[in-house]
Simulated assay, not measured.
Amino acid sequence: MANREQFRGHWNEVKGRLKEHWGQLTEDDLQRAEGSAEQLVGVVQQKTGATRKEVEKFLNNILGGSLGDQASETVRQYSEAAQGFADEAGAYAKEQARRLAAQSSDYSAKIVDTIRTRPTESLAIAFGIGIAAGALFFAGRRR
């Protein structure tokens, strides 16, 4: 049998579905049992002649269906939100990659320009970096 919170949370739906299924139930009958699943089962049994098991199964189907619908709706909403965040993150990453590529291209152009306008200084700097790298390499191998 469904718990009290489930039952109270879906009271209007439960009332409507009970009246659809068992037409002889009145609003007054259902008001007597409001908030109590045990009383509701008793009222339905008394008015309709249905068995306790039959009434409980019907109530569980109502509550199980509506809870399942709510759960699937919640999952759908979270899925849509996650997709939105993923789309935003993808757009941000693409923009940052584009910006980085543009900066890299700018720096490459500046380096080429510097080498063309100052070839002697560029060659001296490259030679010095080569000497330093070689020294570090050989110093690391000796240890």
Rank of each mutant, 00 (worst) to 15 (best):
D87I: 05
Q70C: 05
L136C: 12
H10A: 03
L136S: 11
K53V: 04
S66E: 11
F58C: 00
Q6A: 06
E95L: 07
R8M: 09
Q96V: 13
I62S: 05
A93Y: 15
Q96C: 02
I131P: 01
N3M: 07
F58G: 02
E27V: 08
F138G: 10
G23A: 12
L123I: 02
E73A: 14
S122F: 08
V43H: 01
A133W: 11
K110E: 13
A102W: 08
E5G: 01
V55Q: 00
I125C: 06
F138T: 12
G90C: 05
T26K: 15
G64H: 07
S72V: 06
A93N: 14
E121V: 02
F137A: 11
Q45H: 09
Y107G: 01
R17A: 03
A50R: 14
A132I: 04
A71P: 06
R76A: 15
L123D: 04
F58H: 08
V43G: 00
K19F: 08
A124W: 05
G35M: 07
Q39G: 05
D106M: 07
E121S: 11
H10N: 10
T48Y: 13
P119E: 10
E20M: 03
E88T: 02
K53L: 05
G35Y: 04
V55N: 02
E34N: 04
G35D: 07
D28Y: 11
H10D: 10
G49T: 05
I129W: 14
G16S: 13
Q39C: 08
W11I: 00
A109I: 02
T114I: 10
D69R: 15
E121L: 06
R76M: 10
L59K: 01
S79I: 05
F58N: 01
Q46V: 02
K110M: 08
N60R: 12
E121K: 08
Q77C: 03
S66F: 00
A135V: 11
G90A: 15
G64D: 04
F137Q: 13
